[in-house]
Design a protein around this nucleic acid. Structure first.
Lengths: 215, 215
DNA sequence: GTTATATGAACGAGCGCTCAGTCAGAGTAA
DNA sequence: TTACTCTGACTGAGCGCTCGTTCATATAAC
């Protein structure tokens, strides 16, 4: 009868709106995401107001709500956008690296550099994912998992072809998670690391560690 | 002349209060911390209200503010309390372990078990530290660093005594951070790991990895 | 009576979100 | 070209409400 006790909010996908031009909608949403990312990094999700987002984009709150269903929805769009950026960058790294020799250390290096460039937004995801409603939270976590999956694939391939020592699937999976997270570690301990290590030294030493395990 | 442009809030240490009995104050603060931890884990800092904290403790908001200067202050007390718990547990682990053989894997095992037991609050720190005013934020991060420092000490000792391969200081420091964070990784990817690994399998495989690096 | 502790109504700033209204410009007909 | 209509993107005052914080008052202890 009553389908669920907790249907409350729409996602952006089905906002009831008067706006008709779909290209405009896309452009506006990108603007909103870009503005929101900056503000969320600066002040956090909860201390950022919808009015601030709107005024940073350059229009009114009324208009903001033509393109977006709720404040939480903006956070979801932001997280999603970040993950798809990271995923593309990582996928890029990998297609470029399989050509070269010393594939693994090349991938690690490039991935850590991505983490370095994206450290603000990676931090954002760690800190604000929990502010999402549970269903969307899950989607965000799955995105994270998909990125780790890219590492799993590469490691499996290298291990199968003998370029790495043979490892069982579970060790490969775990190693993939470790690489992912050691990249993140640079971002959330940046306040410490960046005062004691250059990113290059960090990469070099961590790569040596990983190669001792997998090489 | 004016000491700082940004003095805004008192810390609990100097709350202007009529309360005189210091033991009562301590007891009440512990109650507040305990109640707050549970609520923050459940709903997050921002969605928890001061009234909820007070009523969970079992007294009124008015009383809450007799023992605590602000809501942010409660968060600081919570973070501090968590870190000192973890630090004590880790220090314990270490004094117990130096007796046994295979010291390092023993320490890792016990530390990871601590992370497993404390995963809720470890997560809390990752997510809510940024909600603190910058000065207190810094203190919390330093606490984190102190715990990592415990690992540095142990590794340095083992390396010097030849029980581990010789490593330079910076490799030791980095390895200490890695161990810390791989413990945390279990907590913030728990939603995934706990469905695919038991904590024991996780410990075993990660320990093997670490020993390949340091053994 | 005096001092220590507890109460909770009241305050008011600030928030997410709505909706009646505005207006530039595209469309249309003469 | 002119006059009129219609559309849809945009506006922002304001609603309803929540929440952190305060303080006049009540109660308890001695």
């Amino acid at each position: 009868m009553n389908p669920s006790p907790e249907i409350k909010k729409n996602r952006t996908d089905d906002i009831p709106t008067q706006v008709k031009n779909p290209e405009l909608v896309d452009r506006r949403r990108r603007q909103i995401i870009d503005a929101a990312v900056k503000l969320f990094i600066d002040k956090g999700f909860h201390k950022t107001t919808t009015r601030q987002i709107a005024s940073r984009v350059g229009f009114s709150i009324g208009s903001l709500y033509e393109y977006v269903a709720s404040k939480e929805d903006i956070l979801y769009l932001v997280c999603d956008s970040i993950h798809s950026q990271v995923e593309h960058l990582v996928a890029d790294v990998m297609t470029r690296a399989v050509a070269g020799r010393n594939v693994l250390s090349e991938i690690i290096r490039e991935y850590f550099l991505v983490c370095d460039r994206m450290s603000d937004v990676i931090l954002l995801i760690y800190q604000e994912t929990r502010s999402l409603p549970p269903q969307w939270q899950k989607r965000v976590l799955e995105n994270e998992l998909r990125i780790t999956g890219l590492f799993v694939e590469v490691l499996a391939k290298l291990s199968a072809s003998g370029e790495l020592s043979r490892l069982d699937d579970r060790d490969i999976e775990l190693a993939a998670h470790n690489i992912s997270v050691l990249g993140h570690m640079w971002t959330f301990r940046r306040w410490f690391f960046s005062r004691h290590y250059t990113i290059d030294e960090y990469i070099e030493r961590q790569t040596d560690f990983v190669l001792k395990i997998l090489g």
